[in-house]
């Protein structure tokens, strides 16, 4: 995506801002937790390890739930799902948004009109209710959840890409390519997309955060995959014990908060690094 020489400087730019550095540190922690979940907690998140309702910071770091499951294990395994959903959903969103927005912005005309009508539809429907309906109808599996999140979230990105492509398309170098007889696809992919990339990267990074919040909301409502431990599910399950075991809802919520915060901070830092004009 980004050229090799640009990579270290971009990373350094992000790390040079306090927000970017905090975000990177938090996100790295979450990634490490996800990677080493099975090493740290080989028994898995559903295993009953001890007495139920043990408070945190005692025998178990984050305590246990009503079935005696280790909440710390749930946090570690939940990190995998959150990051996975965030990454894959964003990938699909970026793909859909870039293709639709790119074609609409480049070709204009009826393609543009049609694409904009469709995005308008997706921007009007209540996105979260839409996702609920899709998952409820198709069934609560991980691919369905990711698909539902992507389907209801791609439209704003498509609009953004379209606007950017339109402005880049008007520049002289694109007209020069056209006069050289370069093909449309080649111009779009080789000449225009690299110029739009920074916008996509920034918007995409913030999408990851939104997707994670979406997934947490869905699984909180009981629309998660029942075979998978997620943060949202843990909070939803902890609700019934909210009077006795505050940590059951509090700790997974903090996990969601810190992960989303980390990604937002990195997104802000990326924005400052890639679009210096949009600073502030």
């Amino acid at each position: 995506m980004l050229s090799n020489s640009a990579k270290p400087t971009l990373l350094r730019k992000i790390l040079s801002t306090p927000t970017g550095a905090i975000g990177m540190a938090l996100l790295t922690t979450v990634i490490l937790l996800a990677l080493f979940a099975s090493v740290l907690f080989p028994e898995g998140p559903f295993e009953m390890v001890g007495a139920p309702f043990r408070p945190p910071f005692g025998e178990y770091l984050f305590g246990t739930d009503m079935l005696g499951r280790d909440i710390a294990a749930g946090i570690a395994y939940g990190a995998r799902i959150s990051l996975l959903v965030g990454a894959v959903a964003t990938l699909v969103i970026v793909l859909l948004g870039t293709v639709v927005g790119g074609l609409a912005g480049y070709y204009g005309g009826w393609i543009d009109t049609a694409a904009m009508r469709v995005t308008e539809f997706f921007q009007t429907i209540p996105t979260f209710i839409g996702a609920i309906v899709i998952v409820a109808v198709l069934g609560p599996t991980l691919p369905n959840i990711i698909g539902a999140i992507a389907v209801v979230s791609w439209a704003p990105l498509a609009r953004l890409v379209r606007a950017e492509v339109r402005s880049v398309k008007g520049r002289e170098f694109v007209e020069a390519c056209l006069s050289l007889g370069m093909g449309d696809m080649r111009i779009l992919v080789v000449q225009i997309l690299p110029n739009v990339l920074s916008t996509i990267v920034v918007a995409g990074s913030l999408m990851v955060a939104t997707a994670i919040l979406f997934e947490a909301g869905l699984s909180f409502l009981g629309l998660g995959d029942p075979n998978i431990m997620t943060w949202g599910f843990m909070i939803g399950a902890g609700r019934s014990a909210i009077r006795t075991a505050w940590w059951m809802v509090t700790i997974p919520g903090i996990a969601v908060l810190l992960t989303v915060l980390a990604i937002n901070l990195i997104g802000d830092a990326l924005n400052e690094a890639l679009n210096p004009r949009a600073k502030r």
Binding site: T19, A216, I235, I242, V249, V260, L261, N264
Partner: peptide
């Protein structure tokens, strides 16, 4: 604002219940 912007709605609700209701 940045922290609140990262907070899941349902969790805010539950925290408010724990603190102000319970």
């Amino acid at each position: 604002a940045i922290v609140t912007y990262a907070t899941p709605l349902f969790w805010v609700g539950l925290m408010l219940i724990i603190v102000f209701a319970l």
